[in-house]
Nucleic acid binder design. Structure first.
Lengths: 118, 118
DNA sequence: TAATCATGTGAACATCTTTTCATGTGATAT
DNA sequence: ATATCACATGAAAAGATGTTCACATGATTA
């Protein structure tokens, strides 16, 4: 028996399997963007900011107060969230109000919650 | 006019709003776990591994070949994926086959894709 | 048993991240 | 205009992360 046919599952199609996997793989750029997106969710400060915005739009100093962090730290993170188009902002006088950009945020976080609650 | 009533949106409920936001915030541990989970998705190597496993279960060396990376690097990443319970494995002779642990993986990645395709 | 194959793992290195600190910008009020 | 408030931003320091390298483990075969 040839060595490439040694095991069940992966044995059948075989040389084709890896080719098929390669073929179905999205392009490099897409995968990179996807990883970048999840990286944004991968920080508890940013997760907390997003959760805060679930309730209502908030200005920077309010977020800072709720999370008990410096305004500067929050501002840096809001920039990351904005670049990922997860939040939007609008100015009102001196303050700038941030809100969730769309519903994917809720869905993604919701699915994440489901997974850890297993 | 008192300064705390200066703007529209956040002005009404007011002192209550931040309290409400604080109240609805999941506990620290939960938020941390959630961030940890997304951190796992936040690396293009791991995303590529997961995508490869969309197609079929695969052994470590096959994954390494498909991604054109060293077996060691893949092994390290599989450990991370396993600790996050995103993949499972089974032994078959010398080889160890990895597969997706559940459907949250597909859902989460799918939602991520939708977001970047905007 | 010894050799070999597939995989796991610890340490080291380079790189990237997050926060802090100091300062810059834009808007309001005096 | 000047002071003040809310926010943004660059640089630096501390910490976390991913890959490589060398080696260990576990299973098969000779």
């Amino acid at each position: 028996m040839a060595e490439w046919a040694s095991t069940g599952e992966a044995a059948a199609g075989d040389r084709d399997l890896l080719d098929r996997v390669r073929a179905d793989m999205p392009d490099e750029e897409c995968l990179y963007d996807l990883a970048e997106l999840f990286k944004v969710f991968g920080d508890s400060t940013r997760i907390r900011i997003l959760y805060a915005l679930f309730e209502s739009e908030l200005c920077v100093c309010d977020i800072a107060e709720v999370l008990n962090m410096t305004q500067s730290a929050i501002s840096h993170q809001l920039r990351v969230l904005k670049q990922a188009r997860l939040v939007r902002n609008r100015r009102e006088g001196k303050q700038i109000y941030y809100s969730l950009a769309d519903d994917h945020v809720r869905t993604i976080i919701g699915q994440g919650m489901e997974h850890i609650d297993e």
